[in-house]
Design a protein around this nucleic acid. Structure first.
Lengths: 131, 131
DNA sequence: CCGGATCCTCTATGATACTG
DNA sequence: CAGTATCATAGAGGATCCGG
């Protein structure tokens, strides 16, 4: 008989807790809440993109922050970087399989912001009216 | 015949675009990517919480940031604040109906971080090994 | 075209102390 | 208990220049 506690909880073998500041997953969650990560990952949800195209898609991002964000995502195994040594050089970024599991979640938040923007704006107006 | 473009796209009447830095939804998306918003909203997913309980749930948050985050969420119509004028005063925070539509999305990201932490850590190790 | 290296500026955040 | 007010600071992020 092999009734481990894991067997009773088929999913979510909770060993990490993002609420705990000392848990590594807290740091990871913070990274995912980064200013540019959501937009970059969402943009790559439409397929691979060259550096410049990514910069155009995520309008307003500086070179520095785009590169820095991509490096971190690459290190975390969410994005892969492929260099084509042409002249000039061509660099494509693409979501890894792991990245693809995250993309829909961040994309959903982005969509939520777009869909509910009007409601939030009227909530703000109502709030501000009281003071 | 009433075939408006909206009729052809039943859902997502895209009028906001978070990729556009000048679009209000970009600002909203940035707010949702705030360092504490995800954890606070997720914590309230288990039901209403008093200020102190919230501070305990979202370990590591300072009074200042917790209050500031809650004020913003309240203004944006995601969280409601109820004061019970007892002695000492009791304040409960709760997700609004609008907040409830957002909570599962942020909670999913938090769960993703917890579930995939190990994979990310090994990706980091592999990346760092190459330099 | 891609992005590394610098310099510089703000602002987001924390620590601390105080109040109804 | 649930904040507000103040002060101080790290570091996020932008602008610019340079190089492969």
């Amino acid at each position: 008989m092999v009734t481990s506690s894991a067997a009773r909880r088929p999913e979510t073998p909770r060993q990490y807790d993002a609420y705990d500041p000392s848990c590594p997953s807290r740091g990871l969650f913070d990274r995912l809440s980064d200013k540019w990560v959501g937009l970059v990952v969402s943009a790559l949800g439409d397929g691979p993109l060259r550096y410049t195209d990514l910069a155009r898609a995520v309008a307003g991002v500086s070179q520095k922050m785009l590169t820095q964000t991509l490096r971190t995502l690459e290190r975390d195994g969410l994005v892969s970087r492929r260099v084509t040594p042409s002249v000039p050089v061509r660099v494509d970024y693409e979501l890894t399989p792991l990245g693809w599991t995250l993309m829909p979640l961040l994309y959903a938040v982005k969509e939520w912001a777009e869909v509910h923007m009007a409601e939030v704006e009227s909530a703000r107006a109502a709030y501000d009216a009281d003071r």
